[in-house]
Each structure stands twice: as structure tokens, then as C-alpha cells.
Design a protein around this nucleic acid. Structure first.
Length: 297
DNA sequence: CACTTGACCTGTCCGC
DNA sequence: TGCGGACAGGTCAAGT
């Protein structure tokens, strides 16, 4: 589902597609998903021009010329899809788009630009949201205050990575890796993929993971996320980019959703179980628990 | 405070 | 074929 690489792919697409477009009108199923303040939409969204598209962790930010910002979280099934005027409704949408005519029954918000192109926020499960804030207040949103560092930032080091986990010493390492206040942007797919890459069992407690293992996990996490961005993200069921197209990382996944198949490293059958409340995939040969853990499981 | 679990939703799939 | 239940998994609130 949308994790850092998927949200970054959407960000890049929107950055290409919607900057300098001017908002003509907005339709939405208020108050379920948007907007939190109808008067602000009238005064600061309609008539504004898109100036920038940013990302922090799994959150998208669309900056507007009014010094307001659309803040968007896709959660599990959210989509942000742009359609040019002549293909926005009815026939004519791109053949390689995963989705058909828009709006469809999962559309929560439709932004229409002055050139009659459209930006659709779809969200089948309604966990996602779109909110409008003054740009200057975005850093004060509770989530932004506590979210951890960006793992792909050039100046983010392996030492800093390991240091961030210390607060979760007694957590299984997968739970800590998924904790957004430890590291930003990691979700279930890239947690499993990077733990496999580092040969760490997801139920290893943080305090038992060595610095050397954290160093490897840091390298694997960055590598897997960079590869996923290169492949346009992972499409399991719902995820699409800003043009409605699928990402292809799942073709390159080593363990995620590959239970019953062979580990690409040693051929052992990949198994799935629950860890940190999530479906979790490992190679039982590559990712072993110390003997002392056996009693606890 | 550290850590875990349940709630929020809907569509899909599996077993009976 | 129909139907109940499990499952999907990001984040926050509530519970241990």
C-alpha cells in the first residue's frame, strides 16, 4: 500500500502535472473525507494556483498561491489521479491506467482546474484524508511534530538510524521499523523486504539487534526504497501513480506476498505469519531467531 | 513511559 | 450459489 516510495512516485507525477494549474471548482463528500473547513475551501482553494508538490513521510502536500496547503494522506487505498480535460470523464482515458472512468464510486474529492483538467482523490476504504491548512501551520500538525527522519535524505547516516531505535529497545524490530516516530515512511512491504535483505528476523527485539545488523538494515532499507521509487512503487491491489498507472516493484519483491515460493537467496520456502499485527514474510533459513527466543514463540 | 491491541472502512476471498 | 468471517495494513486512541 502507499508507503514512502509510492507517495514519492505520486508526488513526482503531480509535480509534473499540476503545477501552475488554477483551481476552478471543488466537489467532495464533505464531511467524511474533506474538507474540514468549507469557508477556507471557498476562500483559499478555489481560485488558487498550485505552486509546489511536496512529501514528508507518507504525507503529500500541495502548496497553493494563497499560502494554503492541501495535506493528503492516502493511508491504505488512497489514490491521487490527474486526468487531462479530454480524458477526465467517459471514454478516452489511458489504456494502461489501472482505473477506468473518473469519478467512480470511490472518488471522495474532485478538483477541477480552469483548463477543465481534473485531480481526483479516490479512497475505497475511506481511511485517507485531504485537509486544507495555512502553509505555515503544516509543520505544527501533530503528525509532523513527532514523525522521524526521512530515510533517504543524503545526510541521514547509519549511526543516526541505529540511534533512533533505542527508544523501542523491547519492541520486535519490525514493530519499531513500522513506527513512524522512529523512521519516516516505512510500511509493511519495505519492512519485510529490508529485514530479509539484512537477514534479520522480524521478532528480534531491538536490544538484541547488533550495530552491524542495524548498519546492514540501514543500507538494505535505502536500497529497497530507492529501487521501489525507480520501479514506480508497488501495486498490490489499489495503488496507482498520478496517471492512474501501476508500479512494478512487486515483480522484484523477494519475500513480500511470496509465501510458498522460493527464497531468491537459498531456495528455502518463504513462510508467512503475523508479527507486529501485520502479515509478515520471511525466509526461515536466512532470518533465524536465537535459541533463547524459542520458548517465547 | 513502553508497548500492544482495537477501531476506523470496504472489497475480496475462503470454507462450509 | 449464498453467507459469515478472516484478511488487507496506516495511524491514532485506548488499554495493559
Amino acid at each position: 500500500m502507499p508507503e514512502l516510495p509510492e507517495v514519492e512516485t505520486v508526488r513526482r507525477g503531480l509535480h509534473e502535472l499540476i503545477i501552475d494549474r488554477k483551481v476552478k471548482s471543488v466537489d467532495h463528500d464533505w464531511p467524511k473525507s474533506f474538507p474540514n473547513a468549507p469557508a477556507d475551501v471557498r476562500n483559499f482553494l478555489i481560485g488558487s494556483t498550485v505552486t509546489n508538490v511536496r512529501r514528508r513521510a507518507k504525507v503529500l502536500m500541495i502548496d497553493l498561491s494563497t499560502d494554503y496547503t492541501l495535506v493528503i494522506h492516502l493511508k491504505m487505498t488512497g489514490q491521487m489521479v490527474f486526468r487531462a480535460a479530454d480524458v477526465a470523464f467517459g471514454a478516452g482515458h489511458p489504456n494502461d491506467s489501472l482505473i477506468g472512468e473518473l469519478p467512480d464510486r470511490s472518488t471522495r474529492v474532485t478538483v477541477t482546474f480552469t483548463d477543465d483538467s481534473h485531480l481526483f482523490f479516490n479512497d475505497q476504504r475511506k481511511f485517507g484524508w485531504v485537509r486544507l491548512f495555512p502553509t505555515i501551520e503544516v509543520p505544527n500538525i501533530a503528525f509532523m511534530q513527532k514523525v522521524g527522519p526521512e530515510p533517504l535524505e543524503a545526510n541521514f547516516t547509519a549511526d543516526q538510524f541505529a540511534e533512533r531505535f533505542k527508544r523501542r529497545a523491547r519492541s520486535p524490530v519490525k514493530a519499531a521499523l513500522l513506527d513512524q516516530t522512529v523512521i519516516a515512511g516505512v510500511g509493511n512491504i519495505y519492512a519485510d523486504e529490508s529485514l530479509w535483505g539484512a537477514k534479520i528476523h522480524p521478532l528480534m527485539l531491538v536490544k538484541d539487534v547488533t550495530k552491524k545488523q542495524f548498519d546492514t538494515l540501514y543500507t538494505e532499507l535505502r536500497a529497497v526504497m530507492n529501487l521501489a521509487i525507480e520501479k514506480g512503487g508497488s501495486t498490490d491491489k489499489n495503488y496507482v501513480n498520478a496517471e492512474g498507472k501501476k508500479g512494478s516493484y512487486m515483480d522484484f519483491a523477494r519475500v513480500f506476498r511470496r509465501e510458498g515460493l522460493a527464497c531468491p537467496r537459498d531456495g528455502t520456502t518463504i513462510v508467512k505469519f503475523r508479527a507486529a499485527g501485520r502479515g509478515t514474510h520471511i525466509c526461515p533459513t536466512c532470518q533465524k531467531l536465537p535459541k533463547a527466543y524459542e520458548i517465547k514463540i
